[in-house]
Simulated scan of single mutants.
Amino acid sequence: MDTSDWLVTQVGECLPCDAPRDDEFPASPYRLYRFLTDVEDILRDRPEDEARLAAIRPLVRRLLVSSDWLQGEYRAPDPQTGWSVVILYDEPDFPLTVQMVAWLPGKVSPIHNHGTWGVVAVVSGEEKNTLWKRSPTPEFPDRIESVGDRIFLPGEIISFLPDAIHCIEAMGEEPTITFNLYGVTDYQRRFEFNPRDRTAHLF
């Protein structure tokens, strides 16, 4: 299992980040409620998204290392849509949402940003991220261009700045399962992009 951490920026860079080793964490269980409280403290004390993500990534890794129950906390993907979402925690006025997401092999998402910071940990399977950046022209202010792609494997953690643009494809022969953590979405900043038409609309 890989233990690499990454930061995806608004211009499609995929930057390696320092990641703790599994044996650096305490042996005691790290409960979901403690994780949520620790993340809430980070959000209160660190206003900058990049600093928040740097502090949250190790907590996500510690939770996944400590909480074996998370490995099976997902729903089989819907054969019609090709994906499923299990909400692990979502409370009104709480500044984050925690999900387990499953994708059938070959399923591809729309090209989008999230309008908030996000952290995605690959639990099983393989996930290809194709990364994009805005490349506006006077005629097409929502034009984007592909920067490249990267396949993420189990154990890798990918963090996203709010305006990072990507699409994902589940690779391999088994469903791809991910642990997803998102901040409060600004729906006026969340878009789905169409590179062929060079347009974007709220997503």
Rank of each mutant, 00 (worst) to 15 (best):
G72C: 05
L64K: 05
Y74Q: 06
R46P: 00
Y74M: 03
L59T: 04
D93A: 15
R44C: 04
E91P: 00
L59P: 07
I87R: 13
W69Q: 06
D45T: 12
L63Q: 03
R52T: 05
V86Q: 09
P47K: 06
P47M: 00
V60Q: 02
W83H: 13
R46L: 11
Y89C: 12
W83A: 05
W83K: 09
P47Q: 01
R52I: 07
A51P: 00
R46V: 02
R52L: 05
S66K: 03
R61W: 03
D78S: 12
D68G: 07
G72R: 08
Q71I: 01
I87T: 15
E73A: 14
Y74P: 07
P79D: 04
R62L: 12
I87F: 10
V85R: 11
R75P: 00
A54V: 10
L59G: 08
P77F: 02
Y74A: 15
R61I: 03
R61H: 09
A76R: 11
R75S: 02
Y89N: 13
L63S: 07
A55C: 09
D45K: 13
A54R: 15
W83C: 09
V86D: 09
D93N: 14
D49A: 14
A55P: 02
R46H: 09
P95T: 11
S66A: 14
E50W: 01
P92V: 06
V65C: 12
D93K: 12
P77L: 08
L43C: 12
D45N: 11
I42K: 01
E91S: 14
W69E: 15
L64P: 04
D49V: 15
L70A: 04
Y89Q: 12
E73F: 02
L53I: 03
G72N: 13
V86C: 02
S84Q: 09
T81I: 05
D45G: 01
F94R: 05
Q80S: 08
T81L: 15
R44F: 07
Q80N: 05
R62Q: 15
A54I: 05
R57Y: 09
A76H: 09
R46N: 06
L43K: 11
A76E: 14
G82P: 01
Q71V: 08
F94E: 01
Q80I: 05
P47E: 01
Y74F: 15
P92F: 01
